[in-house]
């Protein structure tokens, strides 16, 4: 057993940290949020130039041939600055193309993703009506959407014929799209599995949530240590310190369960329960952390000129995306106790 990252992984994290910290400043995030697409295209280009978008894609198509653990290191850094770029949606969809796509499909999409010339996403929120895909993240700027057909994934052009797209704004202030599909042509990823992609999305979300939680908690520690009330720093009150301690414990629980799931998936091991454990911590623990960090900022949390509210909104969005804490527990129960439970 070894919980440390190797030199290559440490280098990935350092590079991602440098780019996200340098580019996704509070002012920049605010400016992008005020735009129509809410997509930081300059940051996207920088990530491509640093070879972080092709990180987990095959070397034959311009990638670096690494895997999910490295992607999670990048996503954690993204979560720390709540940067509005579709790394998770695009890279996990591209990984599915690399895993299941034909040579032609791989040749068409993977080099473009690695260069930052294509945005991919997937429509995995449960829907009662398969012709109506709700709240698809990043579809408004995507070149292709992976949609579930049976248990398989198909490539759909969201700008092509037979697709009607309506934009909506999500809790985290990102743009999502409701897609109504009527006779649109799709392209099958042969032998692909919706579950395969969902597992990677869930773990990637959990990694992002770890970044959100740890950065929000650091901001909270700084804020409550500098803010003085009753002639001493707020952080010296037990009512504050104990809550921050609870948030730290939850963050570390999120971190270890996320790495366990990422490592098992990357190693080709059975990860059915590990993914759900990570998702549950990301959903339940993540939500608890951002409630605490928001709360300990007092009125500042409600003022949108101050950045901490974005962590609360991202935490909530990541918590409830692809099923919240309660449906996750039910699924985990079925996995560990048997399907008849």
């Amino acid at each position: 057993m070894d919980f440390t990252f190797d030199d290559g992984q440490a280098a990935v994290r350092e590079l991602a940290e440098q780019i996200f910290q340098g580019r996704a400043t509070v002012e920049r995030v605010k400016a992008v949020e005020a735009g129509e697409d809410r997509f930081d295209r300059e940051l996207w280009v920088d990530l491509a130039k640093a070879e972080l978008l092709g990180l987990c894609l095959p070397e034959a198509y311009g990638g670096s041939g690494l895997g999910l653990v490295e992607l999670c290191l990048v996503l954690e850094q993204q979560g720390r600055v709540v940067a509005p770029v579709p790394v998770l949606a695009t890279v996990t969809a591209a990984m599915a193309v690399a895993e299941f796509g034909t040579d032609d499909q791989q040749a068409e999409w993977l080099p473009r993703v690695a260069r930052g010339d294509a945005v991919l996403t997937s429509a995995l929120e449960p829907t009662a009506d398969p012709s109506r895909l709700i709240s698809v993240p990043w579809a408004h700027v995507a070149d292709r959407v992976l949609v579930p057909v049976g248990g398989e994934l198909h490539l759909l052009d969201p700008n092509g014929p037979g697709v009607r797209s309506e934009r909506a704004i999500a809790t985290d202030r990102s743009v999502v799209s409701h897609l109504t599909i009527d006779g649109a042509p799709t392209e099958r990823l042969p032998g692909s599995s919706v579950q395969w992609l969902r597992d990677r999305m869930l773990v990637g979300q959990a990694a992002t949530q770890v970044g959100v939680a740890e950065a929000a908690l650091e901001m909270t520690a700084t804020y409550t240590s500098n803010r003085r009330q009753f002639e001493k720093p707020l952080s010296t009150f037990q009512g504050v310190a104990l809550k921050a301690g609870d948030a730290y414990i939850a963050t570390e629980a999120m971190r270890v369960t996320m790495w366990q799931a990422a490592w098992r998936l990357a190693s080709g091991l059975d990860a059915a329960d590990a993914v759900l454990v990570a998702k549950w911590w990301a959903a339940d623990g993540g939500q608890r952390v951002v409630h605490i960090t928001q709360h300990l900022h007092g009125g500042m949390g409600a003022d949108i000129d101050y950045p901490v509210h974005r962590y609360f909104l991202w935490g909530k969005q990541l918590s409830d995306s692809l099923g919240g804490a309660s449906p996750t527990l039910a699924r985990l129960g079925r996995v560990i106790a048997g399907a008849t439970a």
Binding site: E125, P126, A168, I169, K316
Partner: peptide, 22 residues
């Protein structure tokens, strides 16, 4: 209020993550 807001949004599923008129 805090618990209720979380409950209600979770009841709504994916739609619970939409903001405003949507």
């Amino acid at each position: 209020l805090a618990a209720l807001a979380d409950l209600v949004l979770s009841l709504e599923g994916a739609a619970g993550m939409l903001n405003g008129d949507d």
